Amino acid sequence: MNIAVDTSAETARKLQTEAVHRLKPNSGLPYWDKAELGSFQAGHLPQWARDGLTSFRRVVLDQRFPCTFATTAERNGQLVYAFAETATEKGDVKHIADAIVAYLDSLADLPPNKVDFQVLVALIKPMMDCPLEEYGTMAQALLQSLHECDPAPWPAEIPTDENDPLWSFAFAGRGLFINFSTPANHARLSRNLGVCMALIISPRDVFDRVAGPTDKGRRVRSMIRERTKDYDDGLPFAPWSSSAYGEGAVGTERSQYVLSDDNETPISLSLKQCPFHAKS
């Protein structure tokens, strides 16, 4: 007697595994560096990934782009890139998690002046007509999924209460500075980095060294705020942005992950409104 076996789930897993494999360079690393993206093998990336990378670079290399650190890092070939088909599928979340771990490991071999500009950019496959609120929901789900598969315990020095002014997301034993940019940010152009949702990741301590709550850091943030206001056509800098980090000002670290297109109403279902849940 022949017994029919439903292999749809197995087929789906196989297809996603193949999709993730296509998004890796020949080195086997889960992210791409300047050399790999400049070689012939980059042509094997799906068209959406190549288009997403091109549009991202076009934005950050614009002389008006407010974050001069990102512009300098891209010009110097110090940004590294990971690509994912979705922000929610298990295989894609693992791929992003692997990229973060590999990226953090790579920093140990770099001198401090290189570490400051070495940033991981994860680009998610574009979605047609996706509203900003839905991007907020996906961002929250991705961070929660990353937390659930974190290979390391939560760092003892970072509060677990996300309302604490010193809280930051942590992964692989290290505090991280993270923000999301989306193609649905039509007014806040500084949070629109092309056709893909972009996840920007760097170590929290590196961000604090460059733009933290110090005299130098305040000057840097002030400069970026002014440039951001001009770039966003006069839209004031978000009151719950990362400028509040560690200073007890309006907003907390989590409230800047996804920013709305105004300064009055947080994004529905964003991290600001749906608290992060620490795993036990």
Rank of each mutant, 00 (worst) to 15 (best):
Pro203Phe: 00
Thr214Leu: 13
Arg204Ala: 03
Met223Arg: 12
Leu235His: 01
Ser190His: 02
Leu193Gln: 06
Pro213Ala: 14
Asp233Ser: 11
Ala211Phe: 05
Ser222Gln: 12
Asp205Leu: 15
Asp233Ala: 14
Phe207His: 09
Ser241Lys: 01
Ser242Pro: 06
Met197Glu: 01
Pro236Val: 07
Gly234Asn: 06
Ser243Asn: 12
Arg204Glu: 07
Ser242Lys: 02
Asp233Lys: 11
Ala238Pro: 08
Ile200Asp: 03
Ala238Ser: 09
Phe207Gly: 10
Leu189His: 06
Pro213Gly: 14
Asp215Thr: 05
Asp233Cys: 14
Gly217Val: 07
Leu235Glu: 01
Pro213Asp: 12
Arg191Ile: 13
Lys229Arg: 13
Glu226Ala: 13
Pro213Trp: 13
Tyr231Lys: 05
Ser190Met: 04
Arg191Lys: 09
Pro203His: 00
Ile224Met: 12
Ile178His: 07
Ser242Gln: 08
Val206Arg: 02
Thr228His: 02
Pro239Asp: 02
Thr228Glu: 15
Arg209Asn: 13
Arg227Trp: 03
Gly194Tyr: 01
Arg225Leu: 10
Cys196Trp: 01
Ser202Gln: 15
Ala198Arg: 03
Leu189Pro: 02
Arg221Tyr: 06
Trp240Cys: 10
Asn185Lys: 02
Arg209Gly: 15
Phe237Ile: 04
Thr228Arg: 01
Pro236Trp: 04
Lys229Phe: 06
Asp205Tyr: 08
Ala187Pro: 04
Ile200His: 01
Val210Met: 14
Arg225Lys: 15
Ser243Leu: 08
Phe177Gln: 13
Ser242Tyr: 00
Asp233Met: 10
Pro203Ala: 00
Thr182Met: 08
Thr228Lys: 03
Thr214Gly: 11
Phe207Ile: 12
Val206His: 01
Asp208Tyr: 01
Gly217Met: 12
Asp215Trp: 07
Ala238Glu: 07
Ile224Cys: 00
Gly194Pro: 13
Asp208Cys: 10
Asn185Trp: 09
Thr214Pro: 11
Arg209Met: 13
Val206Gln: 05
Cys196Gln: 06
Gly212Phe: 02
Pro213Asn: 15
Asn185His: 09
Arg188Trp: 06
Asp215Gln: 10
Pro203Asp: 00
Ser181Gln: 02
Glu226Leu: 11
Val195Lys: 02
Arg204Gly: 00
Ser241Ala: 09
Arg225Gln: 15
Gly212Ile: 11
Ala187Tyr: 14
Arg191Met: 10
Val195Cys: 11
Asn179Leu: 04
Ala211Gln: 07
Arg221His: 05
Lys229Thr: 14
His186Asp: 11
Ser190Gly: 04
Ile178Gly: 02
Pro236Lys: 08
Ser241Pro: 00
Val220Glu: 13
Asp230Ile: 12
Thr182Asp: 03
Asp208Thr: 05
Thr214Ser: 15
Tyr231Phe: 15
Phe177Thr: 10
Asn185Ser: 11
Ser202Asp: 11
Pro183Phe: 10
Phe177Trp: 08
Ile178Lys: 03
Pro239Arg: 01
Arg221Pro: 00
Cys196Val: 08
Ser241Phe: 00
Ser202His: 07
Met197Ala: 05
Asp205Gln: 14
Thr214Val: 11
Arg218Pro: 07
Val206Phe: 00
Arg191Ala: 09
Val210Leu: 12
Ser222Met: 12
Arg191Phe: 06
Ile200Leu: 07
Asp215Cys: 03
Thr182Ser: 15
Ser242Val: 12
Arg191Pro: 10
Asp208Leu: 10
Ile224Lys: 00
Lys229Trp: 08
Ala187Ser: 13
Arg227Gly: 04
